[in-house]
Every structure is written in C-alpha cells, then in structure tokens.
C-alpha cells in the first residue's frame, strides 16, 4: 500500500513538473513572437526555457525513478545551464553590435554612452565605428 501511494505521489508531482515545463515553453514561444526587439526576444527564448527544461527533466526523473538514466538527466541539465548563457551572450553581443537593439525602447543605454565616451577619448568621431552600435 505504501509503495503504491508513493508512486502515485511521484506521478502527480511528475505531472505537475511536466505541466510547468510545457507552460514555460509555451510562454517562451509567445514571448519570441510578441516581444518587440531582438534582445527582449532572447530573454524570453533562452531563460524560461532553462527552467522549463529542468522541470521536464525532473518530471521525467520522477517517472523513471531509478536507473543510470537519472544521472544522464542531471548531465543534460548541467550542460544546458553551461551552454545556454554562452549562446545568449554571443547572440546578444552580435545583436547589440549590429544595431538590432531598438534604442527607442530602452530606458537607459549605458553601453552606447560608454562607447561614445571611449571613442571621444581615443580621438575618433562617432563615425569611426564601422558597425555603428547606435542608429541615429
């Protein structure tokens, strides 16, 4: 009896985790379509996805409950956490450098200000930047 109820509890928890993960993935999809510029889309794309994936993995682990496969799930989560910031940073940097950030949607932009200051200090004018990070 005890075994049965424990597995039932695990199943319910697994279902909740799977649902949460799927909801977060859906929210990521909605955000990717609805957010106005590249960086905002990236927020929606890379980050809720990590938690969503971890939730799905926890749900899967709760369903499997045993076996060497569980450690592989841990690895999947670790790899995802190690690699997704790299991708996010590379895409974000490339997007920023090529001016895909919509300046009018930013409240403050300290990077462009700092870049301009550094450029002035180096004696270049604002046009010295080959791929202007700010569109006028």
């Amino acid at each position: 009896m005890g075994v049965v109820s424990w597995s039932a509890v695990a199943d319910v928890l697994a279902a909740l985790c799977l649902l949460g993960g799927a909801l977060l993935a859906f929210a990521a999809g909605v955000g990717v379509v609805r957010f106005p510029d590249l960086l905002a889309r990236m927020h929606s794309a890379t980050k809720p996805q990590v938690l969503g994936l971890v939730l799905v993995l926890i749900g899967l682990a709760l369903r499997l409950r045993s076996g060497p496969a569980l450690w592989m799930l841990v690895l999947v989560a670790v790899f995802q956490m190690l690699t997704s910031p790299v991708a996010a940073h590379m895409v974000g940097r490339a997007g920023y450098r090529t001016g895909k950030v919509r300046q009018e949607l930013l409240v403050v932009d300290e990077l462009t200000a700092d870049q301009d200051a550094a450029r002035r200090a180096a004696g270049l004018d604002a046009d010295g930047d080959p791929h202007g990070a700010h569109r006028s």
């Binding site: 960086l39 927020h43 809720p48 940073h89 974000g92 940097r93």
Partner: peptide
Amino acid sequence: SLVPGSVVVEA
C-alpha cells in the same frame, strides 16, 4: 545570464 530578465551583452 541564467537568471531571466537580464542578459550580458558585453563584458
């Protein structure tokens, strides 16, 4: 970068 709502664009 992993915490949602903030992403590092330049370091």
